[in-house]
Amino acid sequence: MIEAVKGGVPDKTLVKGWMTDYGLFQGLTHSQRDSVVGAFEDFVASHRRIRLMTDNDVYHVYGELYAALYGAENRVWASAASKLLWCLYPRQTVIYDDYVHSTIVVLQSIDRNLAGFPRVGIAPRVYTKSDIELASKFYVNFQCIVKKLCAVHKPTLRQLRRRYQEQYPYDIRVIDKLLWMISNPNRSW
């Protein structure tokens, strides 16, 4: 999917399959799914890539993508917007997930590195388009916290990458996945 969006508007079948695999279409009909995929395709076609996104850029781009998805189907798109944004910016984007959120809530209480961030609290529910601003603000704080954890543990990631000759280039996704694994009750160690 990352490679597909690099080349412009990705194939509808690829996007639909990818979103299905990530569980982003639960409860949606085929026509609703097509509408959401179309909204993402339109977003990709009109979006001008930003080389190095600032937190302010993330706020706006996440909000625009969320609004596009919300315009196609009125529901909560916090996780989907972050996952699709990750496809566009895999080195800079954190995937939002309830499990990662739960981990961060706990870590904010015990990790000094996270003391300066506003508490993540409860993710806002989006009932109207105006709520997308709150969701975007929440997401930026969430992302900043995960990025901080990534920066703190970057030396360890480099060391492990050298030791195991790992080529996966997205450190932010590695940290995100580890946070996800910590809170996932279905994860077997």
Rank of each mutant, 00 (worst) to 15 (best):
V94K: 06
D98C: 06
Y139F: 08
P169I: 08
P155D: 00
I122N: 09
H47S: 12
S102A: 11
L65W: 04
T93L: 10
Y59N: 11
G38P: 03
E64S: 15
F138T: 00
R49A: 11
S82V: 00
L149I: 06
W77N: 00
V94E: 12
Y99I: 13
Y170H: 15
S136R: 03
L179I: 01
L52I: 14
Y62I: 04
P90H: 02
A67F: 06
G8H: 02
L28W: 04
R158E: 10
I145M: 05
F117A: 05
D21K: 12
V61L: 13
E64A: 15
I50R: 09
R187K: 07
A78V: 04
I122E: 14
G7T: 06
I104Q: 07
H60P: 00
R161S: 10
V100N: 03
G71L: 10
V152I: 11
E133A: 13
V174A: 15
F40R: 01
S79P: 02
K16A: 05
R119I: 14
C87K: 13
D11S: 14
G121Q: 00
R163G: 09
P155C: 10
I110R: 03
T128Y: 12
I2L: 10
V5Y: 05
G27P: 02
K154T: 07
V120F: 09
Y168C: 07
L149K: 00
D34M: 11
N184R: 03
R119A: 09
G63N: 01
T156D: 13
Y168V: 10
Y62R: 00
G7H: 06
V140G: 01
D111Q: 04
V100A: 05
L134I: 10
V100H: 06
G116P: 02
N186K: 06
L178T: 08
E133Q: 08
T29C: 02
